[in-house]
């Protein structure tokens, strides 16, 4: 202050007011960027395409003849582990006129299990 003086309290009060409003403004802005990050990030993080892809390759692999079938199964499991850091496991059995498949997928963040019937 210009002098030791207890006048001009208005200015000090307004100063407080403005600084508080900036503080809250900063808080709100901060929140909104966090929201934006999580929306786009969660889209990337959720392995929708990976699950769909694994599902379709497992479906395709059922048409592969039996001795080679085990190779394809190991391919899917081992390459998933190495290149996609995800655990993929599946088993199936064929009944009278349908095939039942159990799929397990886990990439550490998302876990997905499915029981799936192909007529």
């Amino acid at each position: 202050m210009a002098r030791l003086n207890d006048d001009a309290q208005w200015i000090v009060l307004m100063g407080f007011l403005v600084s508080f409003s900036f503080f809250f403004l900063a808080l709100v802005i901060n929140q909104s960027t966090v929201v934006g990050q999580t929306t786009a990030e969660s889209v990337i993080e959720f392995p929708k395409n990976d699950i769909r892809d694994v599902r379709s390759v497992i479906h395709q692999s059922l048409n592969v003849a039996s001795p080679v079938f085990n190779d394809v199964e190991s391919d899917i499991k081992i390459i998933s582990m190495n290149r996609k850091s995800s655990v993929v496991n599946y088993s199936f059995f064929s009944a009278a006129n349908a095939t039942y498949i159990q799929i397990h997928y886990n990439n550490g963040v998302t876990e997905y299990n499915e029981n799936w019937t192909i007529v």
Binding site: I44, N49, D50, D53, V54, S56, V57, Q60, S61, V64, A65, V68, D71, V72, D75, I76, I79, S80, R83, K84
Partner: peptide, 25 residues
């Protein structure tokens, strides 16, 4: 960069063209 992947079943081993179905990424 971002990465996109796709599983494919092909009549091909790793490097050598063994004529049997294998899954590659």
């Amino acid at each position: 960069v971002v990465r996109a992947t796709k599983w494919v079943i092909v009549d091909k081993g790793c490097y050598t063209a063994a004529a049997r179905d294998r899954a590659v990424l």
